[in-house]
Amino acid sequence: MVSPAVNTKKMTMIEGVRNAMDEMLKENEDVIILGEDIGVNGGVFRATEGLHEKYGEDRIIDTPISESGIIGNSIGLAANGFRPIAEIQFLGFIYPGFNQLMTHATRLRQRSLGRFTVPVVVRAPYGAGVKAPEIHSDSVESLFTHMPGIKVVVPSNAYDAKGLLIASIDDPDPVMFLEPLRCYRSNRTEVPDGKYTIDIGRASVLKQGDDISVFTWGAMVMDTMKAIETLEEEQNMSCEVIDLRTLYPLDKETISASVQKTGRAAIIHEAPATGGVSNDVISLINDTSFLYLRAPIQRVTGFDTPVPVYSLEQEYLPSAAKIQAAIVNAVNF
């Protein structure tokens, strides 16, 4: 995907996110960023570090603590020519802005038969596992996949983050861009200089395999890869691992082709089981690949509980043992 002529640099995911915004701010004057502490402070995770200095306070805008205000103003700005990137400091704080997404951002195009559109990207760090205070660790991606009119993207590494964020900013519709905060600095990938995009709606096959298709996204990609490494060594099995990267619309072709090859599937996510995106993946497999299945589809998910305070979060998150047990269950069914 990366031509040898292009220089690359090893980056963490947070650097990939920042680099994407830098590219787009440079290319298009109508790209602006709104959020809390994103200016001089560079964002609580440093996603916008240096951008305020480089592009000024008219484009890198520190707002009042006002999630509905950030998203609502972004809608007005977008409908009148801008390409706002709205940073919500943690996904767990997006709820005051939920109405603006549900009743306006996602349906203004349809309500006005295309007269007004909302090319807004809402970025939000999310997920558990970093010992954050209460409410900071929610994984509520399916609240947004259930909203007609928005796309939901979740990168897990720097290369994907940059290409997907650029594609999201270019997208004519609202995009919910969820950044698993556990991935921000935990791995580095080669990232090309300049602008490139990764299509929204395309999953990434991280590892080919024959015995089972394992679907996951966000921070669980790292955990799944690690769990599978041990399992393959110990159990002599071959797992295909797919990072979905986009949760709406799902990559129907990649998901169904993989299940039709392996005949088995497991889905790993840290969000609560009931109403989770895993259910949409299961539906998709049911619709496309039912007769190829050789075992019930496995799910390893968070519990139907609020994400707990951090003394209990490792109990909440899918563990390597649970991931391995689910895969073994399916393969030995």
Partner: peptide, 21 residues
Amino acid sequence: FPPGIPIASQLLHATGAAWAE
């Protein structure tokens, strides 16, 4: 704009659009 149905939600679009101007 299409009429704001959820009460007061349209005020933020008004500031956003005027801010853009």
